[in-house]
Design a binder for these strands. Structure first.
Length: 460
RNA sequence: UCCCCAGUAGCUCAGCAGGCAGAGCAGGUGGCUGUUAACCACCGCGUCCGUGGUUCGAAUCCGCGCUGGGGAGCCA
């Protein structure tokens, strides 16, 4: 008999009659002449209640079923007299795939996120993490759908890169050499004998390659894994995370901001529309303000202010910040959150940052003091998107590379894109996990990815 | 990497002016019940993170280490 998923069962107009369900037992309660089984198969947050009657052939076996056990149920879908559910299954047959012994770590109560991280192999079976990973899947789909609907071309940028100074944190080196006994030349490791003939690393960003593709295909985006070997221990950083990076030819900073705002609104609306049930769990148990925050994101026009104005606002607030504010200093998380949560009470975009605090590839403005950078800042998270119009003038670009300690000859291919048919273009980067945090209210990035990689943590 | 906090039963946590290790949940047994994190009674459950030290005596005080959490830096 063909298996029916609980999600399609519960969304049916009427009874589907005789059905076959397969899943895991959430909890079981015994009554006088039958047993109530809550069954979940991961297709949705909701369980289905299965009634096993005492006169079933294997009722004694059924009564031994524990939380976490895996079963197959064949039975009749019927309306339920109980208050908590519309439908239930009157079982005809229950086949046990496997009993979960009594040391099954997940109980019928709330566990701490810290404990669940230690059992990453089992936590997707909880309501909260099941909901999280279903939303993550929908969000990935929404990202692709948004760009596809706008005619963007999805590109896959390399995971292994030969650029060793992209300036975005520490790199993970990739090698095929025997680290116990590497070939040496004058006392140094001889990389000419490594796999690529030179040192290689895991990518810290697909942006530079995405620019090359945009300057051929127009509008492109990458959505892939990114790696930072930074020894950072915070609730917002991981060694391996996923990043969405669009890049648009013939697009200036203003168009870039328009696009970033449309993106955030689209994916927020998509999740609110398609993940209502899973989202309600987070609104109830994780962040009481969640729905309000999401509605503000979709309805409010994002405030746009230049960095200089943002500094003026922050300077006018006295005795509030731990870190000083003045022109030429980057905004701290506390400053960003003050602007989004307290001052404007909605998302905002800060643009035209001092060039001294931004990387070489951002376009230098006419004032020669600022660059055409923009950060989208949202309540609770702070910066969620960072982007810029790119420097398309080859002489200015080379000058900026030298100023920031980067050897232009290592990036001959990047400079070539400015030599042959250079055009103004823009792009931005979004941390996929930070989007997840924004949309679910989950406060630790380790809880929005199935198997997080952080310093000292590579289990599962 | 820096600062702060924590580590006690399978889980959540109490015990910490030094004096026999506790509760709820989970598990087991029995009862009751179209039940809803069901309910009632009884039962078992410990390297008190590790390691040195102070003390007649340390879960409790002190040093070091490990692990986890929060914050910072870096950033996404």
């Amino acid at each position: 008999m063909k298996r029916t998923k609980i999600k399609s069962l519960l969304s049916a107009e009427g009874s589907l009659g005789s059905v076959c369900l397969k899943g895991w037992i959430k909890t079981r309660r015994d009554a006088k002449s039958f047993s109530f089984i809550e069954l979940n198969d991961g297709s949705c947050l909701e369980n289905i209640q299965v009634i096993a009657d005492a006169n079933m052939d294997n009722y004694e076996t059924v009564k031994k079923l524990t939380t976490g056990s895996a079963v197959s149920v064949v039975g009749e879908m019927a309306s339920s007299p109980g208050k908590e559910q519309t439908w239930e299954i009157h079982a005809k047959e229950i086949e046990v795939f496997n009993f979960a012994p009594e040391d099954y770590p997940l109980q019928k109560k709330r566990h701490s996120d810290e404990f669940l991280r230690t059992i990453g192999h089992l936590r997707p079976r909880t309501n909260k993490y099941g909901a999280t990973f279903r939303i993550r899947s929908e969000l990935a789909f929404a990202v692709h759908q948004f760009f596809h609907s706008q005619g963007f071309i999805c590109i896959h940028t390399p995971i292994i890169t030969g650029s060793d100074c992209e300036g975005a944190g520490e790199l993970f080196q990739v090698t095929a050499l025997n680290l116990e006994n590497p070939p040496k030349n004058d006392g140094h490791v001889d990389y000419t004998r490594d796999f690529f003939g030179k040192p290689a690393n895991l990518t810290v960003s697909g942006q530079l390659e995405a620019e090359l593709m945009a300057l051929a295909l127009g509008d492109v985006y990458t959505f892939g894994p990114t790696f930072r070997a930074e020894d950072s221990n915070t609730s917002r950083h991981m060694a391996e995370f996923w990043m969405v990076e669009p890049e648009m030819a013939f697009c200036d900073l203003s168009g870039n901001m328009d696009h970033a705002e449309a993106f955030i609104k689209y994916i927020t609306d998509y999740i609110m529309t398609h993940c209502g049930s899973d989202l309600s769990l987070f609104a109830r148990f994780v962040d009481k303000m969640l729905m309000e925050t999401l509605e503000t994101i979709t309805s409010a026009e994002f405030i746009r202010i230049p960095y200089k104005k943002a500094i003026e606002i922050l300077v006018s607030v006295k005795n509030r910040f731990e870190y000083p504010v003045d022109f030429g200093r980057d905004l701290q998380t506390e400053h960003e959150r003050f602007l989004a949560e307290t001052y404007f009470k909605q998302p905002l975009i800060v643009y035209d940052y001092p060039k001294s605090i931004k990387p070489f590839y951002m376009r230098v403005n006419d004032d020669d003091q600022t660059v055409a950078a923009m950060d989208v800042i949202v309540p609770r998270i702070g910066e969620i998107i960072g982007g810029s119009q790119r420097e398309e003038r080859i002489d200015v670009l080379e000058q900026r590379m030298k100023e920031t300690g980067i050897n232009p000859s290592d990036y001959w291919w990047y400079l070539d894109s400015r030599k042959y048919g250079s055009v103004y273009h823009s792009g931005y980067g979004v941390g996929f996990e930070r989007l997840m945090m924004l949309l679910t209210g989950i406060s630790n990035v380790r809880d929005v990815i199935p198997f997080p990689r952080t310093p000292g943590n590579i289990e599962f």
